[in-house]
Design a protein around this nucleic acid. Structure first.
Length: 638
RNA sequence: GCCUCGGUGGCUUAGUGGCUAUAGCGGCGGACUUGUAAUCCGCAGGUCGGGGGUUCGACUCCCCUCCGAGGCUCCA
């Protein structure tokens, strides 16, 4: 028998008999590894575990810990679900069933809607198939054979016809056959822990003109514990839902009278104003000015900016004196009018103009969600007008500022760079220059980034920031976009050293993104327990009986004089009840006054973690609080 | 916009054709004057999202509408 050499990721090389299957190799490497194995990477190509090795190769065993492993595992789970559905509902026709970031789905064409009761049945059937531990086998067919096999399924037929390749792979597990590129786990017994999560409508090929199918979603893991942990995380996320907390903490509300137009209550407004104050201070330091531009502007402006032609379905309109006006969906055209009020000199560049601009966008009713997706929001916008040479430094400036903001709130973040798309405007040369300036700035800051080839806006390349909250979920917030188009459309110029007119380049950038959305993210990030500097109410004073009210009022006055946001609760309720209520309102500091405190001229301080500190002097408390507020710290200790 | 599910006092919620629609929290009134997560008693509060229909009778069934939740090409 001939021998072949297999090289592993750690550099080691082992000899095997030609024709050995990968699963056999894995078994030789260790029991644990062979049990965890899901698929393998053979010479950098993802393959099934029962693939036979016929020549010298590089081999890596893939487990659930690898992203590819998760994908294969969930993809196999989708097949498992499809098989169960097929067993229970033989008339169901299957479209596509891939793995996604959060699990997997299968699009199914079936006459009747699936119900939650069906979920239970399907899960039971899946369990059965897992217990049978059916082997999952790959077979290759010609296109003709495949078309014959799937002649009753219009979706698979369409997909097979679209395929350029003549060779088609199918996967078979028991009585179930699916057209699939693979790879898959070797048998259904691997798919131990799963749960169907939701059902939704989805169009065939995502096109609203096509038939709408039922999309069944599920999640799966190699063992029950991981599934349990995942479900727990979902539960935790649900507890933190900003819509729920927003109501409980009296921060904001939305009404039938204005879907997608949130109302901010006094406490929510406190936080928004703090976010704005912080923004103003930091931007002034970084050399920005601030402007205010109107909400409603004439049609001519939007025609010139291109919004009238390209963004119309997202805009709101109105008529004034019989003329067409639009409510601004973006701030830039307004800002540009300010730039154009007089001739600009190169000496003025870079010119950094910020604006807390409230924009209105007509989003589809179905996509609205709390503060995350609204129809009216305030962008912490700024536009920088500059020369090509200034790009790199200006980008570095924005990167520094953004980093400072996100760190302040305790967010980790990831950066992505999007490059020239097919429908781009502007010359290849200026794109090249702009993109390399963005890269140079990122490299100078030693920021790691992912490149999204061809995903830039048609008017310029961009950098996006994705925040990671404490549950590991990511949110796109900040963005830095270079723009060659607007300066062109509005014929922006500056006079150079040479006395000639030149075209400036523009940066559009936001850090919070939308203040409303950022507040939503903060609510979930902190689970409603805001750090002291952001807390709408920083302290509440409780008395023990009526004789302590006067002392409590004095204390309140002292705190309020030092700009501390303080409330009192002098109701004739029991202490435990008042403590409980303050705790549920997530007020960071509960201050209690009683006989002892009056006698010693002190106060008892309770923090949200339940620790109580007695004998604190009011002056010391104020000093401590101010220090914590100044540091914007989320920890409180005495 | 489209699909699935949902909408019952301020909030959470019981109630699948039959007396005057539950209960808890919250609110208000009263008693209690209380030492760090719920003291007791009483009262008020609902055109069951809105409109129409079926029926002797509708929160409950049907149709329309409004609002909300989750989704709507991450390649067989």
């Amino acid at each position: 028998m001939a021998k072949i050499k297999i090289k592993f990721p750690d550099g080691s090389v082992k000899e095997y008999e030609k024709g050995i299957s990968i699963i056999k190799v894995a078994e030789g490497l260790g029991k644990r590894l062979s049990e965890d194995a899901i698929a393998a990477k053979l010479n950098n190509e993802l393959v099934d575990l029962n693939t036979k090795l016929n020549k010298d190769s590089n081999l890596k065993i893939i487990t659930f810990k690898d992203d590819e492993g998760k994908e294969v595992f969930r993809h196999s789970s989708a097949h498992l679900m499809a098989q169960a559905v097929k067993n229970l509902f033989p008339k169901a026709k299957f479209a596509i069933g891939p793995a996604v970031e959060e699990g997997f789905y299968y699009d199914i064409d079936y006459e009747k809607s699936f119900t939650p009761e069906d979920f239970v049945k399907i899960e039971r059937e899946m369990d059965k198939i897992v217990k049978e531990n059916l082997s999952i086998e790959r077979t290759e067919l010609t296109k003709k054979e495949a078309l014959k096999l799937f002649k009753d399924n219009p979706y698979k037929t369409e997909l097979i016809k679209e395929l350029k390749d003549e060779k088609i792979s199918i996967y078979k597990q028991g009585n179930f056959i699916d057209f699939c590129r693979g790879p898959h786990v070797p048998s259904t017994g691997k798919l131990k822990a799963f749960k169907l999560t939701k059902i939704a409508g989805a169009y065939w090929k995502g096109d609203a003109k096509n038939k709408q199918l039922q999309r069944l979603y599920g999640i799966s893991f190699p063992d029950k514990k991981q599934l349990k942990d995942y479900l727990k995380l979902l539960e935790e996320a649900e507890k933190r839902d900003h819509r729920k907390l927003g109501k409980e903490l009296d921060l904001f509300s939305v009404h039938d009278e204005g879907p997608g137009f949130p109302f901010f209550h006094p406490k929510g407004t406190v936080i928004i104003n703090i976010l704005k104050d912080f923004w103003r201070k930091e931007h002034a330091k970084a050399g920005y000015t601030e402007v205010i531009t109107p909400i409603i502007l004439n049609r001519n402006l939007w025609e010139q900016s291109g919004h009238w032609d390209h963004y119309k379905e997202n805009m709101y309109f109105t008529k004034i004196d019989d003329q067409d006006y639009a409510i601004k969906p973006m701030n830039c055209p307004g800002g540009i009018l300010i730039y154009k009020t007089r001739l600009r000199s190169y000496r003025e560049l870079p010119m950094r103009m910020g604006e807390m601009g409230t924009v209105h966008r007509h989003e589809l009713s179905g996509v609205l969600a709390g503060l995350f997706r609204v129809r009216c929001f305030t962008q912490d916008d700024a536009h920088i007008y500059m020369t090509e040479e200034q790009i790199k430094n200006e980008i570095i400036g924005v990167l520094n500022l953004t980093d400072h903001f996100y760190k302040t709130f305790g967010f980790d973040y990831k950066v992505e760079l999007s490059t020239k798309p097919d429908n781009a405007m502007g010359s290849d040369e200026s794109w090249e220059k702009a993109t390399s300036s963005l890269k140079a700035a990122l490299d100078a800051k030693k920021i790691k980034y992912k490149i999204n080839e061809g995903e830039g806006a048609f008017y310029g390349p961009k950098i996006d920031f994705h925040l990671k909250d404490c549950l590991g979920r990511t949110w796109q917030c900040g963005t830095i976009q270079l723009d060659f188009a607007m300066p062109e459309k509005f014929n922006l110029t500056y006079e150079g050293k040479d006395g000639k007119k030149h075209r400036p380049i523009m940066i559009h950038r936001v850090i919070y993104g939308s203040i409303e959305r950022f507040l939503g993210i903060l609510i979930e990030h902190y689970a409603g327990k805001f750090p002291l500097w952001l807390s709408p109410v920083q302290a509440i004073i409780l008395n023990i009986n009526d004789s302590h009210i006067n002392y409590g009022e004095e204390l309140k006055k002292k705190l309020a004089e030092n700009n501390i946001r303080v409330e009192t609760d002098f109701r004739a309720e029991t202490m435990p009840k008042k403590v409980r209520e303050a705790q549920l309102k997530k007020i960071p500091l509960i201050l209690t006054v009683g006989d002892k405190e009056i006698k010693n001229k002190t106060v008892a301080v309770r923090t949200l973690d339940g620790k109580v500190y007695f004998n604190i002097k009011p002056e010391d408390l104020i000093k401590k609080m101010q220090e914590i507020i100044d540091r914007k710290s989320s920890e409180i200790k005495f």
